[in-house]
């Protein structure tokens, strides 16, 4: 159904952005499936068990996941980037097992009765988050994030507290993944631990890499393409992983920075130069 496709495309765009936000400060997270689970299960528990309103449950669960994400990244960021990748993979695995062995969350059977998400809710969140990221891309914050990502030691010498910047972006990314997870859960009605396994985390990262790591459009494009195209081309759906994989390998060989590789320039001096008549 068209509506479902668009809904899942929207969720995947949000998830791709949650990875992109963390990547903005140079960290790669394979734990966003886990943060998504925090959002879905926390909001599910709040609404079904404690009768909270969904619109209160979503921000609350996002905040919870944001805090959790920041906590995870705090010690891991002391070490090199590769170790953080390992830690996030570990978190993804542990999260699924933790849910499976928690009775309150329904264990392996899953948690049911989650309702209330309409497709347009996701559309609205996509627009809102997209607008925020777009605005940020012209501000000093974008420059600082780019600096940390490109060379955190030099950024540190300029006075940037790179650890703080990375922890905050990690938390924000985790919160967005959780918000997407909450919307997703309340659309599916029934959620199970395997909805949030390592493969989900992995695919989110691949959307971003495929679309482009330097701007918000790339991540959105990658997610939309990889969700929607296979739905309309039957052969693609059947061979999705292979086609996806081969496409990524080839694309990275041709365009190592993804389909949309440009970076937004945060400030231009062009007009001034012309006005002053410099050569």
């Amino acid at each position: 159904m068209m509506q479902d496709y668009l809904f899942f495309a929207g969720i995947n765009i949000l998830l791709a952005w949650s990875v992109y936000i963390i990547l903005m400060s140079g960290s790669l997270s394979f734990a966003n499936g886990g943060f998504m689970a925090v959002g879905a299960y926390a909001s599910g528990l709040m609404t079904t068990r404690y009768g909270w309103d969904l619109w209160l449950a979503i921000p609350a669960s996002a905040a919870l996941a944001g805090l959790f994400g920041a906590l995870i990244s705090l010690p891991a960021l002391r070490t090199r980037g590769v170790y953080l990748i390992l830690v996030t993979i570990g978190v993804s695995f542990c999260m699924v097992v933790a849910i499976e062995s928690t009775e309150l969350l329904g264990g392996v059977q899953g948690l049911g009765g989650l309702v209330g998400t309409e497709p347009w809710h996701v559309g609205a969140l996509v627009l809102a988050v997209g607008a925020c990221l777009w605005l940020v891309s012209y501000t000093p914050l974008q420059r600082i994030l780019d600096a940390v990502r490109e060379d955190e030691h030099v950024a540190g010498a300029l006075g940037v507290n790179a650890t703080y910047v990375k922890v905050v972006t990690f938390g924000v990314g985790a919160a967005l993944a959780a918000a997407a997870g909450a919307l997703y859960g309340h659309y599916l009605i029934f959620i199970r631990p395997e909805h949030f396994n390592i493969m989900i985390s992995l695919f989110m990262v691949l959307y971003v890499i495929l679309g482009g790591v330097n701007n918000l459009w790339g991540a959105a494009l990658g997610a939309a393409l990889m969700t929607l195209v296979p739905e309309f081309i039957r052969v693609l759906a059947e061979w999705r992983p292979t086609v996806f994989g081969v496409l990524i390998v080839l694309l990275l060989l041709v365009r190592p920075e993804g389909i949309l590789a440009f970076r937004t320039v945060t400030a231009r001096a062009g007009k001034r130069i012309r006005k002053e008549g410099a050569p």
């Binding site: 980037g81 992983p241 996806f244 994989g245 990275l252 060989l253 190592p256």
Partner: peptide, 24 residues
């Protein structure tokens, strides 16, 4: 093709994609 520290993530993800193809 992906040499240098910059390409650390790119190479890893490309190999991840190869892994996905192998599984499929």
């Amino acid at each position: 093709k992906f040499t240098g520290r910059d390409a650390q993530i790119t190479a890893s993800l490309s190999s991840l994609a190869v892994g996905i193809v192998i599984v499929d």
